[in-house]
């Protein structure tokens, strides 16, 4: 049996009478690069947000490392999962640097509070020692933080000179790179990406695709990646899910999807890609 990092068991979600996801069962392998494709409104984002509990399912359960997410501390759970939201959504009032270090800063802040709380429970001597410890810890954290940020900038291909800029001073492609760096900066084991490469030109898109592929290879992180572009889904995914109206039409490796479409919907979706590959479509 393979090692599953995420499992959906009989998950159902509806809004009022409108059933979005009737009954979802999916296993996602550790270290996988899973792309999800499907028509607009079919429930991709809903599925993704159930993993970090931005949306709670009506029925069924979702497991991460075998544990029901609904029983985990929601804040810790979310901080351990990178999230690149649909539309990028950088924080407009924070610089590139502050955007990227947002989650590490949150973690550092809470650590410090917890540590301070602990030390108030101690006697004086211990307290002084602990305070010193805290200062040292903070110092080393500041140093590593700087290195970490630079590392992520390198990985997503951003120039250091952009660090002090605000989001409105960036191009679309730069924003998306910052968004990815922000999602990665706390070194999560799972990365959820909701159409991260929308609204950029083909060349930038190609570069971003290559970068995310490299990141995946380097870090053995598990990536779940939503896209509208079948070409992107097949190029990036180790596995691909084709979704329609909240149900999985096909779940397999790219070649399988392309060569053995399970439903007419998948076949239709793949036709265009085949055309391109076989050179029949010149209007592109």
């Amino acid at each position: 049996m393979s090692d599953n990092i995420i499992e959906f068991h009989n998950v159902k979600k509806s809004y009022g009478d409108h059933v979005i996801i009737p009954n979802l069962n999916v296993n996602i392998e550790r270290g996988d690069f899973l792309t999800i494709i499907g028509s607009s409104g079919c429930g991709k984002t809903t599925m993704l947000k159930m993993i970090n509990r931005l949306i709670n399912p009506d029925e069924g359960e979702i497991l991460i490392d075998g544990k029901d997410v609904s029983e985990l501390d929601v804040i810790k759970l979310r901080r351990s999962i990178g999230y690149s939201i649909q539309g990028t959504m950088l924080f407009p009032h924070l610089t590139v640097r502050e955007n990227i270090s947002y989650v590490p800063d949150l973690i550092a802040e809470d650590d410090k509070k917890a540590f301070k709380y602990e030390s108030t429970q101690d006697n004086k001597l211990k307290k002084i020692k602990k305070d010193k410890e805290l200062k040292a810890k903070e110092k080393s954290r500041d140093a590593t933080k700087e290195q970490e940020i630079n590392k992520w900038l390198d990985i997503v291909g951003l120039d250091y000179s952009l660090l002090e800029r605000f989001p409105h001073e960036l191009s679309g492609g730069q924003k998306q790179r910052v968004g990815i760096a922000r999602a990665l900066s706390a070194s999560p084991k799972i990365l959820l990406m909701d159409e991260p490469f929308g609204a950029v030109d083909e060349i930038t898109r190609g570069q971003l695709q290559q970068e995310i592929k490299k990141i995946h290879e380097k870090t053995n992180i598990t990536i779940i990646f939503i896209t509208h572009d079948i070409g992107e889904a097949l190029y990036l995914g180790k596995h691909v899910i084709v979704m329609d109206e909240g149900e999985i039409n096909q779940y397999g490796e790219p070649a399988e999807i392309l060569n053995n479409p399970a439903t007419p919907f998948v076949e239709k979706l793949c036709e265009r890609t085949k055309d391109i590959i076989e050179g029949k479509n010149n209007s592109y």
Binding site: K76, R78, S80, Y83, I85, M89, Y102
Partner: peptide, 18 residues
């Protein structure tokens, strides 16, 4: 405020206070 921005913050593990 764009609800997307707040959802991004929430999804990254900010508490309500944060």
């Amino acid at each position: 405020i764009d609800p997307g921005i707040i959802e991004a913050a929430r999804g990254m593990g900010s508490t309500d206070r944060q």
